[in-house]
Write a protein that binds this DNA or RNA. Sequence first.
DNA 1: ATTCTTAGCGAAAACGTTTTCGTGTTGAAA
DNA 2: TTTCAACACGAAAACGTTTTCGCTAAGAAT
Lengths: 357, 357
Amino acid sequence: MRKKITLKQIARELDVSVSTVSKALSGSKEISEDTTQKIQAFAKLYNYRPNNIALSLKNRKTKTIGILIPEIVHHFFSTVIRGIELIANRRGYNVIVGLSNESFSKEIINMEMLANGSIDGFILSISKETLLKQDYHHFQATMNQGIPIVMFDRVVNEISCDKVIVDDFNGAVKAVKKLIDNQCKHIALITTMDYVSVGRLRTQGYLEALQNKGIEADPNLILKVDDSLNVDNHLEDLEIEIEHFLKSNPNIDGVFAVNEIYAVTAMKAARKLGRSIPDNVQVIGFTDGVLSKHATPSLTTVSQHGQKMGEQAANLLIDRLEALDAESSQFMGNTESKSDFIKVVIETELIERESTK
Amino acid sequence: MRKKITLKQIARELDVSVSTVSKALSGSKEISEDTTQKIQAFAKLYNYRPNNIALSLKNRKTKTIGILIPEIVHHFFSTVIRGIELIANRRGYNVIVGLSNESFSKEIINMEMLANGSIDGFILSISKETLLKQDYHHFQATMNQGIPIVMFDRVVNEISCDKVIVDDFNGAVKAVKKLIDNQCKHIALITTMDYVSVGRLRTQGYLEALQNKGIEADPNLILKVDDSLNVDNHLEDLEIEIEHFLKSNPNIDGVFAVNEIYAVTAMKAARKLGRSIPDNVQVIGFTDGVLSKHATPSLTTVSQHGQKMGEQAANLLIDRLEALDAESSQFMGNTESKSDFIKVVIETELIERESTK
DNA sequence: ATTCTTAGCGAAAACGTTTTCGTGTTGAAA
DNA sequence: TTTCAACACGAAAACGTTTTCGCTAAGAAT
């Protein structure tokens, strides 16, 4: 039950000063070889490790990144975290995560809780409620405090910061084009309400692909699901809604859904109505998660490369942190810190499986 | 671009001492009402918030919990994190997560990185490689430093600490009993290698249920999948292996699988062989995740209540942290800190869906 | 013999708090 | 007038580091 040892204790034990110990351990040549050896041996024996908190206070940087996401029980978000953690660890950072649970106020609380010195920068994806309210003052406020932010996936033009997004528009275009090329004549879209930008972009991509091929979009073939409710109770409603939608549009021979759940639910409903996949109806989803891989038939999806997004976001943030560092240790010349922000676009990939021909 | 303000700056600005500012902000009655008002107003104006790092250093506690898990892109683990985060936040703690990626060395690196003052305690689930090596010295070492640990799900008898586990054994018994009650005569088990304790316990539960009903276990009906390989490349192999298994045992009319993936893969293979579910073969899985809900047919599973596990683990840890706190601020009497450790067992629940009759 | 270097080390400040212990001023009690 | 308590505040220590600066003693150069 030996507690952690400190410099002061080593110093007392070896009858030298704290400064000497510190220098000896960092291998400063100010200290004689004898004492250095003695101190290093002692430190190793007692397994000395510098206290991180003390270092953070001294250096005014914590080497930890705050991740703020709406939900963690979600394949896409957890993949992003994995990417962030990978890079962060590799570059000597830790990650601390906060969940907004899609709530505006929890997002703010969490930000403020972490912005008081606990982290050096944020990587975040905006909650639905915040997007609805369009109130982004807390992001601006923390940036004004000198804390950099990198947004991913759910981003917003009103805030100037580094961003990593997936090319939702072109991903949707690719998917719908694929359906058209596969001879689908009546392609349905199952999407969310418009306030989540990614849903909107995917919808636009759907329209674009149709127009491109000279097909007129049929409003009846577009189903906008209201997912503002709790997803759990929502599941049966969803199934009923989609089934009804397919039933009232018997000519549908292709479905593009903006997420996995909608896609597999559509497959389920279609089969219930006696239509087989992919023979009668071909289906493509968005977000390549476990469901797509293991559904029967397995689902053709647009992969967002969540892990890559996380990696890019982490690199962007750490690059900026270290740039700020260098800047402040420079001659303090106005090194043009107005440096423009970077927007990384991750290309999507169409992963073909059994739900398309 | 106003950086965060400190006590010292407020003091200088208002021409009082740092101590006065601190006391005024905490509402000490040592300070006159006038100055208190003035200081509080100023602090509010400049949106003063005490620096967390400084507080951590002073109080020798960080109010953050370290979570160390093998993998985050995993429904069960992310549910647990959600539970931990919920309680932690409610009780004023943050969570910092590290991923071992099932690797022994990464587990150690991560522990050491966080144990140097960054966190007050750990909540963790042991990596597969560590379980294989049976080398647990790093857990003992950090506990010896006075850092409490709560283990969940993958725990180990060799280490004395608080634990939260799911009742794998009885969960398996329930599942297999259900199959027997549903008239299955030849129940197969698809499981993992034995070194992961949860797999072993579920296997034991399977055997127990059979024996209980007077059915002799048939070794041919037990498939042990070697999942030490990478899961991704593994997927096709898995499918082939299970299909072959089912084909060579045509009498199988019930399947109990120790996880979702094995279960849905079994369903897929069974259907490929022309057997229908649940009419010819009934299937039950373990771990109630997205797959179970959205598979077709939806899967009857044993739910582990991951979120509840997380909540319990967090409460256990924080209780212990605050007990230690009280203890050290006591009259230092030997308050019997050898207090025995708590093991919480979460009961499983059988969620019946379409894959059983 | 005197001055200059240099090696080897310690003192102290700083990071931002909280808290204990003074200390000076005031008004009232003696 | 003297003494004392209460009031309002400041100084300083402490948490664990790193780093700058200064100091002493020994040897080298003059």
